[in-house]
Structures are given as C-alpha cells and as structure tokens.
C-alpha cells in the first residue's frame, strides 16, 4: 500500500521526531529541583523555551518546509508551536516513564500556579491521546501535519503549505489503515484530536496571561 517514497518520508520524519527531545540536563532538572510554585513556574518556562528550540529543529527536517517563504515559516511555527508541544507532552505522558517520573511531572504542573480550569482539559487531552495507542509514526506525522496547517494567521502562500500537508495526510491515512486494521475510525479520531488541540491552544493564551498575573 505504501509507495517507496512514502516509506522514505515516514522513516525520515520518525527519525527527526525521535531527535526532538529536550536536553538531558533539562529533563533531569524537572525531576530533581526542589518543589515550590515559584520554582515550578520558572522550570516550566525554561522547559517551554527549550522545547520550542527543539521543535524548530524538528520542523527544519520536514521535507519542503525550508523552501517555504521565510516569514511563512515563522508564521507556521508561531501558530502551531503550542499545539505541537501539547502533542509531544501527550506522547510523553501516555508512555509509562520509569519509576514515577510522570507523577512527579504531573505534580509539578499541578502545583505551579496554573488555574485548575486549564489543567483539567490539558490532562483530559493527554488521556485521550493515550487511549488512541498511537504508534511513533502516527505521532511524528501528526506533529508535522499540525505544523503544516495552512490556515494559521499571517500565512501569505496557503497553497504552498497545503501542497506540503496533503501528502502527509495521505501517508498518515495509510499508516492508520495498516497499523489499526480493525479500527476504520482511527484516522478520523486522530484528526479529531487536532481540533481538541486548537481549543487547548486558545485556552493556553488566556492561561498564560492569568498565570503571569498570579
């Protein structure tokens, strides 16, 4: 079912996605630094900055991305960074990390001054991603598809972005059929998560404001 080019695209994107990790020392700090609201706030902010840098490195590897207009590249990244980061965090949370790291991370997020009305939908999203039992190919492709959304604000050449996103969607559709043969709805469910991500993205801007105030 998959053509040679599609297989090459998958392995290329999965490889880039696997390299898409925050530095080891940052991850260690998250699990070791002492624990108070102020510290959690600073650590989560530092981690977010590091995660954006890592996300940009991943995005540079998306075939065709660097051939897009430079300002459109920035508009795409700016419009999708938060969503791609939530998707990546969902993957981390749905993979059982060794000896309780997930619990420590979750606790740190819950006790960093972020309002409960935002934390609940975020962890619901992580749970819904976990339930889909996504394979790494699906995560890598869905992240690329999220970034290559032509309808982000300030995109000048939407067709150019569509031409990159469409083959990715086609490959993801085939991958879902191959990896989830008994779940014809699987691909549709993945796209449904993209809508949920948009809502989270919208709340995130509000949350950031109120978090900074408190």
């Amino acid at each position: 079912e998959l053509t040679q080019d599609q297989k090459a695209l998958i392995s290329y994107i999965v490889d880039a996605h696997n390299k898409h990790r925050i530095p080891q020392d940052m991850a260690k700090k998250l699990l070791q630094e002492q624990f108070n609201t102020e510290e959690n706030f600073l650590l989560l902010t530092e981690m977010a900055t590091s995660h954006v840098q890592v996300l940009v490195e991943f995005t540079k590897n998306i075939p065709g991305f660097q051939s897009l207009d430079h300002e459109d590249q920035i508009a795409l990244l700016k419009g999708s960074a938060v969503e791609a980061m939530f998707l990546r965090s969902a993957q981390v949370f749905s993979k059982k990390l060794p000896n309780g790291h997930t619990e420590v991370l979750e606790d740190r997020i819950r006790r960093s001054g972020i309002s409960e009305e935002f934390i609940t939908p975020m962890f619901n999203f992580y749970k819904s991603i976990g339930e889909l039992q996504m394979m790494q190919e699906e995560h890598a492709l869905l992240t690329a598809i999220t970034i290559l959304s032509p309808d982000r604000p300030y995109i000048k050449d939407q067709q150019a972005v569509e031409r990159l996103q469409e083959p990715m969607l086609e490959v993801l559709r085939k991958v879902c059929k191959l990896q989830h043969p008994h779940e014809p709805q699987h691909f549709a469910r993945l796209l449904g998560r993209l809508t949920e991500l948009r809502t989270l993205n919208h709340h995130h801007a509000e949350m950031l404001e109120s978090w900074r105030m408190s």
């Binding site: 900055t49 954006v52 960074a81």
Partner: peptide, 21 residues
C-alpha cells in the same frame, strides 16, 4: 516568561542558527 513576542524571538533565532550555537 515566554510571551508571544518571546516565542517569535526564540523561533527566529532557532531558524537562523542551529541548536549548538
């Protein structure tokens, strides 16, 4: 903390250089 402008700065710098710089 990374305000939206901060986000754009981080993206511009990362797009220009690579991680090691």
């Amino acid at each position: 903390p990374a305000s939206n402008l901060g986000l754009e700065d981080i993206i511009r710098k990362a797009l220009m250089g690579n991680m090691e710089e």
